[in-house]
Amino acid sequence: MRQPLLEVKSLTKHFTSKQGFFSKEKVVRAVDGVNLTVYPGETVSIVGESGCGKSTTGRCILRLIEPTDGEVFFEGQDIRKLNETELRRARRNMQLVFQDPFASLNPRKTIGQLLEDPLIIHGIGNSVERRKHVEEMIQIVGLSKQQLDRFPHEFSGGQRQRIGIARALILRPKLIVADEPVSALDVSIQAQILNLMQDLQKEFNLTYLFISHDLSVVRHISDRVAVMYLGKVVEVADKQSLYEKPTHPYTQALLSAVPVPNPHLTTQRIILEGDLPSPANPPSGCTFHPRCRHCMDICKTVAPVASEVSRGHFVTCHLEQS
């Protein structure tokens, strides 16, 4: 039995907001009991639409946001129980790549400084060794040593994302949480970055938790996929099983909504009615029931639990429980 690298159990994040001094506190259930297991060397993706809680889940796992409840085990150690010093040490093994390569690099630092910072923070090497390390890293992501003294604004979006990846990799972490790393990029550049991430995964034996709204990108990069809707995981399966036999009505609608670049096909599309409900006021029972075309009476009152429909393929839906 393989030991998981990351194990997330009933992870919950509730944000509270107050509209005015006398008003009642509103609870936004951004992440509501997420379970997820990631094994070493694999790529697990969380896919879902805006507001489903996929980014919050990623940030809670790294404790960039404090979770409200639940457990996050990284190599068997509960991240939530660590104090600040221990957490910093643990973060050496878990790094984040952000979506927006324009906002996530400090514009006043050179690329060399940006890449050296993590090494300084973790007290690695002397300045000569660090420089050597930084020079190596920048070449690994496909840029050149000469570019280290430039500032972020001198680079294109794709190059900046390479820098973001180099910064995350410089500590040689085991886990990379990549939050929409290619969403801001054009398709030809996106392909370059996805290829780079796959090459790096092989070279450094990396584990990726990949967060994205793009179902085609997710199919390409993942081994396993978790689909989120309103703070909950509604379906988890290996890629093949999820894309060939989507079982949750939401996953089915999501996949059918993707426009296929083939003008000969007329797609049979499942159109979801209405918008995503507010996570501050989620529907009762199964949170997907107001938009579901298979909605039954039980869905309106009882929240379904996950059941295994085939090996490793879990679905949270009443249809699969009868």
Partner: peptide
């Protein structure tokens, strides 16, 4: 051609994408 080949597909698995090198 490059544009069409560099797109990941939602309906088939691909080993590797054919990226267009460089940038605009």
């Amino acid at each position: 051609r490059g544009l069409l080949k560099s797109m990941p597909s939602v309906s088939v698995n691909q080993e590797r994408l054919d990226a267009i090198p460089g940038s605009v």
